[in-house]
């Protein structure tokens, strides 16, 4: 489905990615693991076209993404839940959802579908996004991305700063999306949570994908976790 091959990318002159490769298939959860500053967020930004790919390729169902104008990439079916939520803070919950729906021209039925996943948001449609609680903001960021009915969902630390019950809720939604056939790329710090949901793991270090393993293998032998994360 989504295939990332040996991508390089830079912030201005500072080359930050030196070769990241992974792929993810429908109904699969792929996790990117790595220390702070390893380049996980940068990898997702590069897939989204926020940073240009300087070499390597990103293909979705065989179509090259890196040569498209950046705003066309989400329209091809990649939903993005950025680190820190990045809602439009002065727009209402409803307007944030409208922006998501606009991306791929989705309609009322899609809106109903996401509001059923997150009933809390339905009660707060008129509230300004910036005034939501942290958990509600994460729900909205997730809802906004699901409004694309994406083929691939990119999630960057969706549980950052959330209480356990909220983490469980987000995890349930992720698993539900997997069962609905989405291909999911998850960046997450909490190793336990990762091992619960992930199918495969790719380790990122200093802007490179350095190793990979299945979640089942990591549960049996956590040596890689020690090596790349120091846990």
């Amino acid at each position: 489905m989504l295939e990332v091959k040996n991508i390089h990318a830079a912030y201005g002159d500072a080359i930050t990615l030196h070769g990241v490769s992974f792929d993810v298939q429908p109904s699969e959860i792929l996790c990117l693991l790595g220390r702070n500053g390893a380049g996980k967020t940068t990898t997702l930004k590069t897939v989204m076209g926020i940073l240009p790919v300087t070499s390597g390729s990103v293909t979705l169902e065989g179509e090259e993404m890196s040569s498209l104008p950046p705003h066309e990439i989400p329209r091809r079916g990649i939903g993005y839940i950025p680190q820190g939520r990045r809602l439009f803070p002065e727009l209402t919950v409803n307007q944030n959802i409208e922006i998501g729906l606009m991306t791929r021209g989705m309609g009322k039925d899609t809106k109903e579908w996401v509001l059923e996943l997150f009933p809390r948001l339905r009660e707060r449609l008129k509230q300004t996004a910036g005034t939501l609680s942290g958990g509600e903001q994460q729900m909205l960021a997730t809802a906004r991305a699901l409004c694309l009915r994406p083929k691939v969902l990119l999630l960057d630390e969706p549980t950052e700063g959330l209480q356990p019950s909220m983490i469980a809720l987000i995890r349930d939604v992720i698993l539900k999306m997997k069962n609905e056939g989405f291909a999911i790329v998850l960046v997450e710090q909490k190793v336990d949570a990762v091992l619960q949901v992930a199918d495969r793991v790719v380790f990122i270090e200093n802007g490179r994908s350095v190793d990979r393993a299945t979640a089942a293998d990591l549960k049996r032998d956590p040596q890689m976790l020690t090596q790349y994360l120091g846990v």
């Binding site: 990045r86 439009f88 803070p89 991306t103 791929r104």
Partner: peptide, 24 residues
């Protein structure tokens, strides 16, 4: 209007607006 909504989204976070298909 939709145009106004797009303008305001771009104003508040152009990077994220682009990641939601807005031709910034």
């Amino acid at each position: 209007t939709k145009i106004g909504l797009i303008m305001r989204a771009t104003q508040q976070d152009s990077e994220t607006a682009q990641a939601f298909g807005i031709p910034v």
